[in-house]
Design a protein around this nucleic acid. Structure first.
Lengths: 345, 345
DNA sequence: TATTTTTACGCAATCGTTCCCGACAAAGAT
DNA sequence: ATCTTTGTCGGGAACGATTGCGTAAAAATA
């Protein structure tokens, strides 16, 4: 009843050879006679022999698998990124083991330990929004486990990183709104600790300053966006709408925030872009179907996953330890649609 | 430089004990003295000992990992389902290894072989739209590998299955359209081979017949929806619009078809629901933001993933071989919005 | 005190594979 | 004819953990 694949030992027994001979024949070693080699190869083919990856992992201390740590799988950006990861990993013969932190530091730590103990050959990481202490990564990294960060990175570890040009994206978005006549632009963004949050905030801030508009803290709202983004957005929005100088436009720094904002505005029966203009970071596949069509910054999620995985495999398969690391910055797709149309005077 | 975790042997050496004693102490065996036990436990804690899962896998011929085979990760339904899978698997101490077939039979076969050779303890499968030959699954299943199907199932293998009530969903959707005055309802659906396609077609068909409306083959369009759904939809739509009796409503059987249809209708500047009403299967998180708001059938993706995983772990951890299998049918969420509003007379 | 039982631990096999180290024949060199 | 080389192959350890069996010493019993 059990699942019993054929082993190298079985082949040896069947052919009257030792396991070492079979092993060598299978790997095409020069010290095996061509007759024996052919015999083994043919028999192995016949019985559909597949080397046991578990045994190989134990022996070689590598598993040909890559661990992925993200905060959420069911998210446009990350599922697209995972798609990119999987596409490269598959081609290169690696398995992908996925775990999600749900934006929790503790879950992140547990997941990372779990993956490490499963002997993944490397870790592809996008940090949780709670993470400040990086020691769980630093420990493993110092012991030689390759780590590549993407999207949400940290500068506490020197390794390959793959990010989008967040600064430029929110800079461009903000400038675009300014050009269209909006002057009181609010920024609703993710958790303050994240690298993406800082970069996007800087872009927004500098766009304002360079266009002689004031930067005001009160126009910046942070949403940690765990399970309850909608509620957070509503609070933030209520807060913004109660201001004497209420904003006339929003730059949202995250897909779920964008959606929550649009939903909230719609519930309050506020018009876009007449009451408020919106430019959102979003990897949604239907910005054109939203009413009004949504001006978006789309992150190159798929490519980010691909590049991160390529860099990872490069490290894993490198003979000599890698000392030169790079930070790959990919460009976003900024598409202007109706939600950021000209301000009515 | 290498990544060298502490082993049971290291502990034994440090404490002057044999590996067997350490192993037994760690597992709390009764035949180890309490002093020794305490000593080992404390030392293991101190050096942060973690048993090597690879070695355990080799020994116990199980890997505490579950393989997932879906056609696409970056898809609302599947990413939500994977979320459900991961949530249960994590709780029960299992890893999740994901692969995608991209609707290709060949890729599916390769992925399945790959997962099987990695000694996954079980396979969670949603079939590709090309799959007719099930022998790659049958072989493994006969050798004792647990398989649980979800969403896209096959009756060639008797095992647990988790599906949505596809029949009822499309039946209800069709009846709803009929009640709202639509009489020429087209059905745009997925690949003809899939179980979900058949079930949804039956629901649609019977709803028509029971309401004394004719069922017409020409109103049913199949889209295999690989990479080029949009083009397929456009063809199907062109075809439908050229009919003398062109339809006045659509029931779409898949998320990407729904989106492609809406996009195409929008491009052609056709009005919903005045020109055409639409009810779509969709697990999009923004049906209310679409213009007009979209009447949807939402599959319980997360729950399906959860249930499938629970059933899987039940099989894996069962002492005696399981002979009684069930097909769990979960209910969908049918939400009526504007895209299926009353027909103008 | 002598014998049996219990306690507490070690030895060694096992899982599937690789690889170092010999072994031993035939062939070539001297 | 003897020695060295070459070509083929097998033995066995190793990877990390579990576990059946064996056994010394200590404890319990006769």
């Amino acid at each position: 009843m059990k699942f019993e694949p054929v082993t190298i030992k079985d082949i040896g027994k069947a052919l009257g050879l030792s396991t070492s001979t079979v092993s060598r024949a299978l790997r095409g070693s020069y010290e095996i006679g061509s007759d024996t080699k052919k015999q083994v190869l043919e028999y192995a083919e016949k019985v559909n022999y597949r080397p046991n990856p578990i045994a190989l992992s134990l022996k070689e201390r590598r598993s040909r698998s890559i661990g992925v740590v993200v905060c959420e799988i069911a998210n446009n950006f990350f599922s697209q990124a995972i798609n990119g990861i999987e596409s490269i990993a598959y081609k290169r013969g690696y398995n992908v083991i996925i775990s999600q932190s749900s934006e929790s530091y503790e879950r992140e730590v547990v997941n990372v330990q779990h993956l490490a103990s499963r002997s993944v050959d490397g870790l592809l990481v996008s940090l949780s929004s709670e993470t400040t202490d990086m020691s769980h990564f630093i420990n493993l990294h110092e012991k030689g486990l390759p780590i590549v960060f993407f999207d949400r990175v940290s500068n506490e570890i020197i390794t390959h990183k793959v990010i989008a040009d967040n600064y430029k994206a929110s800079y461009d978005a903000t400038v675009h709104l300014i050009k269209n006549g909006f002057k009181k632009i609010a920024h609703i963004t993710a958790a303050p600790l994240l690298s993406i949050t800082k970069e996007r905030l800087d872009g927004y801030k500098n766009a304002l300053l360079e266009n002689d508009l004031p930067f005001d803290d009160k126009y910046v709202k942070y949403c940690s966006h765990g399970e309850k983004v909608a509620a957070e957005i509503k609070d933030a929005l209520t807060n913004l709408l109660e201001m004497k100088q209420k904003p006339d436009a929003f730059v949202t720094a995250h897909d779920s925030i964008t959606i929550a904002l649009l939903t909230t505005l719609k519930k309050l029966d506020l018009k876009i872009p007449d009451d408020f203009a919106v430019v959102g970071f979003s990897n949604s596949n239907i910005p054109e179907l939203i009413n009004p069509t949504l001006t978006t910054i789309r992150l190159p999620a798929f490519e980010m996953g691909q590049v991160a995985t390529e860099l990872m495999i490069q490290i894993i398969e490198s003979k000599r330890p890698i000392t030169e690391f790079e930070t790959r910055v990919l460009t976003n797709e900024f598409t202007i649609r109706d939600s950021s149309g000209f301000k009515l005077q």
